[in-house]
Design a protein around this nucleic acid. Structure first.
Lengths: 343, 343
DNA sequence: ATCGTTGAATTCAACGTGGCAATACCTCGC
DNA sequence: GCGAGGTATTGCCACGTTGAATTCAACGAT
């Protein structure tokens, strides 16, 4: 029992050839009822399980796909990863997860596939890698990019329209009569493409409303967690003028903003309206509940897997890379409830 | 470039044998500088990556371990999974993640290893499976159980002392002068061992303080999410007497409790003190911030992996199963800040 | 000149599967 | 009694890799 048994062991025990056992296991060929029974018995007795390494070697496919995300503990990526694992299971795929921690080197390593070929395909959410560099990496491996533009890309891409979504979020704040609208979440040092797009949508909305974008309202952050949001909010409150609204590029940042607002006695939404992005579970139970841009996460998962499947199973992969835009909607909750505006 | 190249291809190109290429790749044997250079060149030109399936087949090991948890999107498991993935990477292991959704059948399937052997070992957090059943499943595969007792177990176990921790949490509430202490999180229908232990600690603390445990204060839940906590809290508030404290078996439940308290105008911590369990990130930014039992998650990850490593690498695995208790501490925050007690 | 030693590279075999082609067995029709 | 046409089963090989054993050349010591 220590050393796991193989087809050969089962065959010996059942008094048939290894090939027949294989046929029973896979239903490949016709097997007489009597033989099938004997083989099945031997399988049960020996506790035989097929060796997937051998199978993969033979088939040239592993049935394993990779998912590379910045951080699993971040709620957005946790939710997305959960959906991807489930949807992948539906396709009989197993998912291995890697965390890049927003490190360019880690992203590069995964894209290049250092350390060998296990994965049939890779879904990656690049955070620190410049779009140009992603495009340059030539790979035989099917790759789907999440939330990053893929310019002359060799890879498929699945994402929401970040510019439009950010525009909507900002416009929502402007509609409430707010004019000192801060944006929290820029990451200029990382060349984070997603952040850049959201900043662009933010500025576009301001301009359309006749408000000139000002640098003082655009707050860069080190990372995208609650603590970074809280810190950015504190800086704003310590500045010359306090904002009357905040568009945070992620819900986590927004929750940090809410936290700091509480701590400093700023009333939300009366004195400060807040919008986030991602629609994570927390935002539905925070105090106040969080208005946010909600991407259709399940659809992101499904479409990403569909892209992979197309490339993995297509005999010749001359299909041009697709660039899928996933629907989103603005979910209005307590943090932007129409209230008395501060003087 | 379509079909990935093998040692043989590289060998042909470099004018050496496949074995020599293997030696260059792995640094297995001495290779002359000149040969190494030629081989490396061929590797780069062909974009060769070792085929891990073949390697695994030869080695009898895949370098892949499995992690089976109820749900990836739950913050506690997300944080834990993130730590496990990182710590596993440090050991050059890759992690495949499965979600059981608290389904007994799914847990059983994973433990039995249906579908073949890919994993060198499995870390599983059983939620619905009865301890007896876990113990009965004989496996050649090294298994580590998280947070579940493993009675006559063949498997290692890593967990906090749930009884003691629940006792501390409850005692903390009693110390504040609260006497109508509710417990939210029992799952009698699932035979959830962890929940049972926390309930036991809760009752023990009450008795020690001279308070008789009453059924009306023990609220079962369907799942352990925020919505379940909110629902349970609503039921309590709709009941005959309102509690003046709640011990929620997970932070998620506790956050649902806070949410419902806000919605019903119950002031926390003045009228209601709340303690959670898990110390998830959200609880540090909620309003009020959440008092909680904080298990040392990194240590859980490290110890679990150490157990696996011991079994995977030990020549004869006659090592008796270990049962490791992970330290925890009560982190007091806003939700139990000493305040005016309700009349 | 011969032998042992060392370093460098090679050959052979096997890990467990499944595709392919071949073979053994069986039944039926004439 | 014999070939045709199935059905059930088998043997052989290759997938890409590496452990073990082997070959070959060069060198220093005797």
């Amino acid at each position: 029992m220590r050393v796991s048994s193989s087809l050969k062991d089962v065959a010996a025990r059942a008094g048939v050839s290894a090939r027949t056992v294989s046929n029973v296991v896979n239903g490949t060929a016709r097997v007489s009822e009597e033989t099938r029974r004997r083989v099945q018995e031997a399988i049960d007795e020996l506790g035989y399980r097929p060796n997937l390494a051998a199978r993969s070697l033979r088939a040239g496919r592993t049935g394993i796909i990779g998912l590379a995300i910045p951080e699993l503990h971040s709620p957005y990526f946790g939710e997305l990863a959960g959906l991807l694992v489930d949807e992948a299971g539906r396709r009989s795929w197993t998912v291995i997860i890697d965390q890049t921690h927003g490190d360019a080197e880690a992203e590069r390593r995964l894209l290049k596939g250092d350390g060998g070929r296990v994965m049939d395909g890779l879904i990656i959410s690049p955070w620190a890698l410049q779009a140009r560099e992603v495009a340059e990496i030539a790979r035989p491996l099917p790759v789907v990019l999440l939330g990053e533009r893929s310019p002359q890309g060799r890879a498929d891409r699945v994402a929401v329209d970040n510019v439009a979504a950010a525009d909507e979020a900002t416009t929502h704040l402007l509609t409430l009569g707010r004019r000192r609208v801060a944006a929290i979440g820029l990451q200029p040092h990382l060349h984070n493409g997603t952040a850049e797009q959201r900043a662009e949508g933010y500025r576009r909305a301001l301009r359309r409303a006749g408000v000139t974008p000002e640098v003082q309202w655009e707050r860069p952050v080190g990372a995208l967690h609650r603590e970074d949001g809280a810190r950015a909010m504190a800086e704003l409150l310590d500045g010359d003028a306090a904002p009357d609204a905040v568009f945070a590029f992620t819900d986590e940042l927004a929750l940090g903003v809410l936290h700091m607002a509480h701590a400093r006695g700023v009333r939300v939404p009366e004195e400060l309206a807040v919008v986030g992005f991602d629609d994570i579970e927390d935002g539905r139970y925070s105090h106040p509940t969080l208005t946010t841009v909600s991407p259709d996460k399940r659809q992101i998962a499904q479409r990403a897997l569909q892209c992979l499947a197309d490339r993995i199973y297509s005999p010749d992969n001359e299909v041009p890379p697709s660039d899928l835009t996933i629907p989103h909607r603005l979910v209005v909750r307590g943090s932007t409830a129409p209230g008395t505006r501060a003087a």
